[in-house]
Design a protein around this nucleic acid. Sequence first.
DNA 1: GTTTGTTTTGACAATATAGGTCAAATATAG
DNA 2: CTATATTTGACCTATATTGTCAAAACAAAC
Lengths: 101, 101
Amino acid sequence: MDSFGEIIKRFRESNGLFLRQVAAKMDIDQAIISKFERGERKPTKEQVQKFARFYKIEEEKLMIAWLSDKVAYELVEEKNHYKILSVAEQKIRFLKIKKKV
Amino acid sequence: MDSFGEIIKRFRESNGLFLRQVAAKMDIDQAIISKFERGERKPTKEQVQKFARFYKIEEEKLMIAWLSDKVAYELVEEKNHYKILSVAEQKIRFLKIKKKV
DNA sequence: GTTTGTTTTGACAATATAGGTCAAATATAG
DNA sequence: CTATATTTGACCTATATTGTCAAAACAAAC
């Protein structure tokens, strides 16, 4: 249940890298990476993919963390979050079927 | 499992109102309401509340439809949507507990 | 306590996304 | 064809998100 930020921070540290180094190699401002790691800012989808490649993390895994962060952030202040999620699930299933036809 | 748009359209029609009339009373451009009804645009939270009051729909019900639309729209193109939703659910639960402390 | 190296913060700019307005186009009914 | 209702699309504005940079804060070493 890790957040995107926790994951990329863990990988950075286990590789013994400084923000400065990651920033240079990935060509992303280090202030932003610092904010990603602490969940203060959300990366774009392209950045998520870039991090997956950089740290050799399975892209799907990182994507799940990132998207679930977004959904959680969007609903945490709302009532009935469980209901909202289950209705959303039904709608997604319906939409996915519809598109294939 | 209705979308926000389907709900407000149903209420408008069952009240025998034209878009023009709703638009005038609610002070929202009728083109926008037309787009809401067909899901082409998403209303703001304030507008959702306004529609709930206008049609005397239970606000929670409309809010659930609106938020689940947003989540569904956000995830429909993604893989692993079920996994994403279940991780999001855990994260929300965790965050809600954390806030109360 | 000052030097050196790292991370965090915050103000501001740039960009992207969402929402609003309006008039014209397209139904639909008579 | 006329009249009324809805939809579409182009354009504009507002808001939210992301990027940049320099300074502040933190930490370890000495």
